[in-house]
Amino acid sequence: MDILLGLALILAGFYMAWNIGANDLANAMGTSVGSKALTIKQVIILAAVFELAGALLFGSNVTGTIAKGIVPLDKIIEISPLIVTVGMLAAILAASFWITLATFYNLPVSTTHSIVGSVLGFGIICVLYGYIAYSDIHWSVLISIVASWFLSPLVGAVLAYIIFYIVRKRFLVKSENVPGVEKKFIWLQVATACFIAFAHGSNDVANAIGPLYAVFEMYGYGGLGPLTLSQILLLLGAIGIVIGLSTWGYKVIDTVGNKITELTPTRGFSAQFATASVVLAHSFVGLPISTTHTLVGAVIGVGLAGGLSGVNFKVIKNIVSSWFITVPVAAVTCMIIFFPLAWFFL
């Protein structure tokens, strides 16, 4: 493999990981800081440990889906492995570009949706060049992924609704000392903060390293010592995410933690537990979903169960719009980036 291409891939993957840590993981962890149970430093340490554990233990399923689940890379490799390398670089650059733009304008765009969209863009390029047939793209997998994007916030909302309903009935309503109940839930919230970092590691690290895995595996790079190639890349992605969290994410944590005073420990626990459960379940079946969007669904669930004085449903409109925009935009951007790269490297 061309060293320049390999380096570009690693850098782009690392940038994606940084962005995921700086925004998505920071949001998920920020909901634990409002209760003042943990300092930002402690949050970063906990997130690092559990993000790594989640990535290493359960991250390979989703990585496999992003790397090879959507586009039949084996068929393209037969024509030229360089096409796959350039395609994956274009995909990761397109996703990074779109994520950067979205972050600049505070748009609720998902890194998962971006990378899936851009990998699909590469698939369409291959169809246009005649490397594969249109029907070769694994549309059924793509449909499952997209369906899970709709389903995951809904399931998150229902689960959070049920959890908070139980917490409210069993503890808040019956208690003579509500602040005492909230205090006890602080530690449960700390535990769910670890759970959410673990779940995030199991699903979102793949967004950054999925394309890298596809390429490095294709060139036959093996593991290192006891670690397999997938584990090495997952480790790399998780480190990138933790660096993102500690270099920029702490600002997001601080903003989210200080602003969302309404998400008391009982409410935070319900939303985080529901989110982490839904995300982890998707990691088991290898479906890449958005942790942030699931968290939004869960927060709405807590709100509907009476946990919040109010929720702004405008954000749902924005998120749904972002679903419809992200995939085509990322796909088209990937196609646009592919042409100059192909001209240069192929």
């Binding site: 505070n106 997001v252 903003t255 929720v311």
Partner: peptide, 11 residues
Amino acid sequence: RYMRSILNIFV
């Protein structure tokens, strides 16, 4: 600024 956050959901 320069964040993708869930803040907008809260009122």
